[in-house]
Amino acid sequence: MEKARDTNVLAGVLWMATTGFLFVGVTAIVKHLGDAVPAAQAAFLRYVLGLVFLVPMIRPILRARLTRRQLGLFGMRGVGHTLAVILWFYAMTQISIAEVTAMNYLSPVYVTLGAALFLGERLRWRRVAAVIAALVGALVILRPGIREVDDGHLAMLATAVLFAAGYLIAKQLSGEVSATVIVGMLSVTVTIGLFPFALAVWVPVSGVELAWLFGVACLATAGHYTMTRAFAAAPVSVTQPVTFLQLIWATALGALVFGEAVDAWVLAGGGVIIGSVSFLAWREAMARGKAAAVATPLPR
């Protein structure tokens, strides 16, 4: 029994490490494309090309017989996620991969605050301390007053808030419809939501650029699959700290491939944020008496 448990924990760690590697691949491709394709158009094409993965979800969505209220919530989530994805693609053209990766971890912190403010969940002092620590980590990364805060930083702050809002809506819907429906409806609503933004800035794209964006769709889909496997194999209190590797890989990739300077402040601030998120994940698991995922919203 003990050996099986150890095997599951190791599997969970390996699945989560793979998840981080795949999501770093997503950021690398988007960084490589740069501003050759406008952010809104790049995001739209990524979702359109990823619709091939939606095919198995069509039947469950049709069978769900969604109510007007549920459709409204899915629509709200789609609008928020649409804006978040555009901002994330834009941030990738403005700031380093390491900064984008580190600041993305703020989303679970905002989820904790939002759950207390809008869903009536109790915010105990330990969670308050973790939230404060994470915000301090963000200040370490941004260092306002010491250096200029770029538009990309502001875009990532807004991205984290919007992803958190989407997660809270998904949390409300999770007790009403299946995970397949939630994921499928997100793809549908965001693709529709991105279309007018993409049309407004449309530029011709090459076959190579389309291939790169399809690669983003494949890596993102694979990343969410491996993340699900990680959560199923081991407690989130074990797998969450492994996500710190994503920041290490992102920093190394930025330095070695894109010539970005290694910023110790970004690593330190990111480490504080990830530590806070890991603590929140552990508290969530303890509160429920089982492993429970504190989602790290990422581009889908």
Score class of each variant (00 low, 15 high):
residue 85 V to W: 08
residue 237 S to H: 13
residue 273 I to Q: 14
residue 25 G to P: 09
residue 102 A to T: 01
residue 251 T to H: 03
residue 111 V to G: 01
residue 286 M to V: 14
residue 203 V to G: 14
residue 154 L to T: 08
residue 193 G to F: 02
residue 267 L to R: 09
residue 122 R to I: 14
residue 20 G to N: 01
residue 57 M to W: 13
residue 212 W to T: 06
residue 41 Q to I: 13
residue 38 P to H: 03
residue 136 V to I: 11
residue 41 Q to P: 10
residue 240 Q to F: 05
residue 243 T to W: 00
residue 186 L to P: 06
residue 23 F to K: 01
residue 127 R to T: 05
residue 145 G to V: 07
residue 200 A to V: 12
residue 31 K to S: 03
residue 202 W to M: 14
residue 241 P to E: 05
residue 95 I to S: 12
residue 117 L to S: 11
residue 251 T to E: 06
residue 195 F to Y: 15
residue 197 F to Y: 03
residue 178 S to T: 10
residue 223 G to Q: 05
residue 246 Q to D: 09
residue 269 G to I: 05
residue 268 A to S: 02
residue 124 R to H: 13
residue 271 G to H: 08
residue 184 G to P: 04
residue 277 V to E: 07
residue 179 A to C: 08
residue 23 F to S: 11
residue 5 R to L: 07
residue 268 A to L: 08
residue 47 Y to P: 04
residue 48 V to P: 03
residue 181 V to M: 00
residue 126 R to N: 08
residue 7 T to D: 10
residue 193 G to I: 03
residue 39 A to M: 09
residue 198 A to Y: 12
residue 154 L to K: 11
residue 14 L to V: 05
residue 256 L to N: 00
residue 146 I to E: 15
residue 268 A to Q: 06
residue 41 Q to Y: 08
residue 10 L to V: 03
residue 60 P to V: 02
residue 298 L to Y: 12
residue 113 L to F: 02
residue 262 V to H: 00
residue 25 G to K: 15
residue 8 N to R: 13
residue 112 T to V: 14
residue 285 A to S: 13
residue 8 N to D: 15
residue 276 S to K: 06
residue 108 P to A: 01
residue 234 A to T: 01
residue 207 G to W: 11
residue 131 V to R: 04
residue 248 I to D: 13
residue 261 A to Y: 07
residue 224 H to R: 13
residue 51 L to E: 12
residue 278 S to N: 05
residue 23 F to E: 10
residue 9 V to K: 08
residue 110 Y to L: 14
residue 206 S to Y: 09
residue 139 L to R: 12
residue 11 A to K: 00
residue 54 L to F: 06
residue 130 A to H: 11
residue 81 H to W: 14
residue 144 P to C: 03
residue 184 G to R: 04
residue 134 A to L: 01
residue 43 A to V: 06
residue 11 A to P: 00
residue 91 A to Y: 04
residue 295 A to G: 11
residue 294 V to F: 09
residue 101 T to C: 03
